[in-house]
């Protein structure tokens, strides 16, 4: 009985230690940018949910497509209704790992590899990010590109020239330690 108890206590302690290495933000920022000769389109999402575990290097990010704010309401409408079909696919997700997650405190750049799901389609991506670890915060920042066609997002030929084939995605995630 004592043995079981001590194992249990140990387990709880380990669990606790691990839990302390988790950092979370509900107000991360992800924006995207499409450049074309006709027009530039930009949208920003300030409600990114992201969790990073420094112990394991796990990163999990969730965003609502409808939280992307556009300058023009027509663009936002087309984005949600025609392109990403956000009623059918309300969320985009990333689930991955920081590669070589040892001694992260001493690193300023990391590679993160994982599955990115947009519009119900999942693709492997590898992203470079700047990392900044402080006493109770972990900041991840970076830029990467995705191909619109990879995620089976159909752009009607009428506006083909208005929307870039490659979209630039910028992220800035300021995680705070989970207490």
């Amino acid at each position: 009985m004592k043995y079981i108890l001590s194992v249990l206590v140990c387990f709880l302690l380990i669990n606790n230690l691990k839990a302390q290495e988790r950092y979370l933000t509900k107000q991360g920022t992800i924006s995207f940018f499409s450049h074309s000769p006709v027009e530039d389109i930009e949208a920003i999402n300030n409600q990114v949910l992201s969790i990073v575990d420094l112990e394991t290097g796990d990163v999990a990010i969730s965003i609502l497509m409808k939280s992307f704010m556009f300058e023009k309401s027509l663009m936002q409408e087309h984005f949600n209704e025609n392109y990403v079909e956000s009623d059918k696919f309300p969320k985009a997700k990333f689930k991955g790992k920081i590669l070589d997650a040892e001694n992260l405190e001493n690193k300023s750049k990391v590679s993160i590899e994982g599955d990115l799901t947009i519009h119900g389609i999942t693709k492997k991506v590898k992203v470079e990010a700047a990392i900044e670890i402080d006493k109770d915060s972990v900041v991840l920042k970076g830029v990467f590109t995705v191909l619109v066609a990879d995620y089976e997002i159909k752009i009607p030929s009428v506006v083909k020239n208005n929307i870039a084939k490659t979209i630039e995605i910028t992220f800035s995630l300021n995680h705070k330690k989970i207490k």
Binding site: Q47, S62, L64, K66, S67
Partner: peptide, 11 residues
């Protein structure tokens, strides 16, 4: 309302 992650989000 734009949906639900861990929380319901309003913009």
């Amino acid at each position: 309302c734009t949906g639900y992650l861990m929380d319901v989000i309003l913009v």
